[in-house]
């Protein structure tokens, strides 16, 4: 199986985080998606984990021997989509 899945494979392409880095985060104590995100930034980029979250869940599940849903899902806080600082600063409460 190793010949098909190498650890230098990228998982989070926004932040260029590899399988090896996620495994290292798990060794350091990450137990869920948020734990991985805080340690290595997987899911913290432009797409906010829309692409990689499922793959991060799979790696966590595989490494920890748990079910994918036990690895949780990332939280959301505003702004949930990328926005220019200028637009945010100009914002008004009408």
């Amino acid at each position: 199986m190793g010949e098909f899945f190498s650890d230098d494979m990228i998982v989070c392409r926004c932040e260029e985080v590899t399988v090896a880095e996620i495994k290292e985060a798990i060794r350091q104590g990450a137990r869920d998606v948020v734990g991985v995100k805080r340690r290595v930034r997987a899911g913290m980029g432009l797409c906010q984990g829309r692409t990689c979250e499922k793959m991060v869940q799979q790696i966590l599940a595989q490494e920890l021997g748990v079910k994918p849903w036990e690895t949780g899902t990332s939280s959301a806080r505003p702004p949930i989509r990328p926005i220019a600082f200028g637009d945010l600063a100009k914002g008004s409460v009408e």
């Binding site: 505003p78 702004p79 989509r81 926005i83 220019a84 637009d87 945010l88 100009k90 914002g91 008004s92 409460v93 009408e94």
Partner: peptide, 16 residues
């Protein structure tokens, strides 16, 4: 809070 697109392509943030 909505980032509203405008015809000119500019964006404005509106809280409603």
């Amino acid at each position: 809070a909505i980032e509203k697109g405008t015809d000119g392509g500019n964006k404005e943030v509106i809280t409603m």
